[in-house]
Design a protein around this nucleic acid. Structure first.
Lengths: 202, 202
DNA sequence: CAGTCAAGCGGACCGGCGGTCCGGTTTGGC
DNA sequence: GCCAAACCGGACCGCCGGTCCGCTTGACTG
């Protein structure tokens, strides 16, 4: 995506996205959302999205590169608000709260997001491209790592952060919520003891 | 797999597997192991395994039902020894040790197994069939849940067990080991604080 | 306003995959 | 040695992600 935001004025050397292209991008993203809702992650092929958007599949690949690029773009929309909240927002998510509270609030928020956008996250998870080094997830894991450093500096923060983030894996959430009938509150509560172990034993 | 173990005597009403079929099953499993090693999880198609085994692909589907059935069978071989060890073996894995030690030893052992059979586990993970409710994994999660109950009975043991098991997700291990260059010892060590949080705060 | 051309578009096409099917072959009990 | 049941192989199917290329269209220029 080396194209400047269409809302900005043209910049020397950078061409603006054509109006029809921008419109199509929007239609495609909306169509993808609808297909995800209707057919689920498993049934959401590029052909299906293209048909729903009334667009050739070539157009989708031109815009988003490949399958996971499409879902990345969709995820970014939802992730942005969350990122703002934990980086600049009010406590307990934002920087005014103590680190342990922030970590708990962060995981709660992430679980809410996962629960809300399950099919999208599953679609992303399908091609292994998602998870650990996922572009959008990178910011999250950096944030968690910094919180962990704050809580107990002697830990290996990056690795611990990955372990924690993986505990709330998409597939697990789907299974617990859908097949095992576990409530979100239960999952959140069960996560607490794990993060409690991070605090210095004193 | 409703066919009796070929080593046993025939039982009334249950037909023994034919000799050639048994031989083929073994050839297929061996071939799958070789292909996994040579081409990795991503490059291990059923066609490739069939070719390597010198067998038609129909034979594979007859034997193992579908793609993941093949890898399940392969996993079972490796899982059995581990199961024996934590159910009947010596401490710290076996029942003679205190529950917290057993849990730590269990996770260490699981990580060793993951590291050792990475490609196989990745192949299993590819079709979502793996993970949470994976047939072979079920026994593991039951075991972890029982240890957790022993450690702190007030926890929601099944959910906590799943969270813990997911923290050592296959994809994460691959990423940490292969791309991030993290040692197995580091991963094990980073897991300790998390399970430490399970112990009653007293 | 007309001309120009890069950008954008669509859908036929490709290779590869998991899975099915069925005509021919093999096995093993009698 | 006979025969039915079990087994086998690989052609075949539908689907999917991704590519390609001839045609269309938007937007800048004079």
């Amino acid at each position: 995506m080396d194209i400047v935001d269409p809302g900005e004025l043209p910049i020397a050397g950078v061409r603006r996205e054509r109006a029809d292209a921008a419109a199509n991008r929007e239609r495609i993203l909306r169509a993808a959302t609808r297909v995800l809702a209707r057919r689920g992650a498993e049934g959401t092929s590029i052909d299906a999205v293209a048909a729903e958007a009334g667009v050739g599949k070539g157009t989708i690949f031109r815009r988003f590169g490949d399958r996971s690029g499409l879902f990345q773009a969709l995820l970014d929309e939802h992730l942005r608000a969350f990122q703002d909240a934990f980086m600049f927002g009010p406590p307990p998510l934002g920087p005014a709260a103590p680190a342990p509270d922030r970590l708990a609030a962060f995981l709660d928020g992430l679980l809410d997001l996962l629960d809300d956008r399950l099919e999208l996250m599953l679609a992303l998870a399908r091609d292994g491209r998602f998870q650990p080094p996922l572009a959008g997830y990178l910011a999250l894991s950096v944030h968690v790592a910094s919180l962990i450093t704050e809580i107990r500096p002697t830990l290996d923060a990056p690795v611990t952060a990955q372990l924690l983030l993986n505990a709330v894996n998409v597939n697990l959430v789907r299974y617990l919520r859908r097949d095992a009938g576990v409530s979100l509150a239960t999952i959140k509560a069960s996560l607490r003891p794990l993060i409690a172990g991070l605090a210095p034993s004193d």
